[in-house]
């Protein structure tokens, strides 16, 4: 048993066998679950089927709320498609009139948007790969290896959750500057090469893998790295996918740190660049919304496209329960 208070916990996620009410102890590791949207039907116990009238009453609340939730996206796209002259009409039109790609064309003329997208992509991919490799390595060690100081190190890592990133900004920036990495994409990547969530998730998943698999590989002459890379990693694919996708989305959307580190116009990421556009072209709302749409749409598509991996993520949590 690990000495740390969070030692015997599960990744919180719906389990297929009607789980009992989660204990407070399980709750505090619900951290991973907050990024694992549960998938309809997986282990949910909904009680008796609803009567038609009840279902309609519920929908009468949920549908308007969904409209409120999605409206900003709709309004973003609508304004982006509306020529600037038409966007400042009184009363505003809720549907795009005279829809055109004018703003989009203007956006690409005025700002190095493709370069920003490339920077964002590069940073997101680099951080994703680092998270997958380093989080998995640490997760594997914490799950399967016995070595003095293991519990303490794990406690240290978990307790870093309490440190707000804002406290570390100034020293981080000094550190990155002294390394000569300010205004450099590497300066954005380096301070995010591992994270608690990934280590936690990988540890929870790898714990469930039977030890015999590793033993068998060792008997066959595999060294430690080969056991990890050729046996553990392939078996952990669902957890790896979850870590990868959430690292990618998080890095793509990051704002404060890239804002601090990057200043050359052609080095910016999409969120930082689009926020800058808002200051440069404060009266051109169509341009701003086009920029926001270019930044937001890739993540929305990714979310819709990878729902299956989200589903796998839930199953990752369900394995143990």
């Amino acid at each position: 048993m690990s000495p740390d208070p969070r030692g015997e916990t599960h990744v919180a996620a719906p389990t297929s066998s009607g789980a009992s009410v989660r204990s407070p102890r399980e709750v505090d590791v619900a951290v991973p679950a907050d990024v694992l949207p549960p998938v309809g039907g997986v282990g949910d116990e909904s009680g008796r089927p609803l009567r038609r009238r009840q279902a309609l009453a519920i929908l009468a609340i949920l549908v308007p709320v969904a409209i409120v939730a999605l409206f900003p996206f709709y309004w973003m796209v609508t304004t982006a498609l509306t020529p600037s002259s038409a966007a400042i009409r009184v009363p505003p039109s809720l549907v795009p009139l005279d829809a055109s790609a004018e703003n989009l064309a203007e956006l690409f003329r005025q700002a190095p948007v493709l370069l920003w997208a490339f920077n964002s992509l590069l940073i997101a991919v680099a951080i994703m790969v680092c998270h997958v490799v380093f989080d998995s390595m640490a997760g594997y060690a914490f799950a399967k290896k016995r070595f003095p100081g293991r519990g303490l190190m794990f406690l240290l890592i978990v307790s870093s959750l309490m440190i707000p990133v804002q406290v570390t900004l100034v020293p981080r920036f000094i550190l990155i500057s002294r390394l000569g990495l300010d205004d450099n994409l590497l300066g954005v990547i380096l301070p995010s090469i591992a994270d608690v969530f990934g280590i936690f998730l990988m540890r929870q998943f790898i714990r469930t893998l039977p030890a015999e698999l590793e033993e068998a590989a060792r008997v066959d002459g595999a060294n430690e790295w080969q056991v990890f890379w050729r046996v553990i990693m392939p078996l952990s694919r669902p957890a790896v996918a979850t870590v990868a996708i959430f690292s990618f989305v998080g890095a793509w959307n990051a704002f404060l740190w890239p804002l601090i580190v990057l200043s050359k116009r052609e080095l910016l990421t999409l969120p930082v660049g689009v926020a800058l556009l808002q200051q440069e072209f404060s009266s051109n709302i169509g341009l701003q919304m086009a920029g926001a749409a270019v930044g937001a749409v890739p993540m929305i598509l990714l979310f819709l496209f990878f729902q299956r991996h989200f589903l796998d993520g839930v199953r990752v949590g369900g394995v143990k329960g």
Partner: peptide, 27 residues
């Protein structure tokens, strides 16, 4: 709700969480 509706609403409500706060704030 029936599973299909559940999946839909959870996805719809989750969407803002995959978008950078910068873009939402701009809108």
């Amino acid at each position: 709700l029936p599973p299909r509706f559940r999946t839909f609403f959870r996805a719809a409500y989750y969407l803002p969480a995959v978008t950078s706060a910068v873009f939402i704030a701009l809108v």
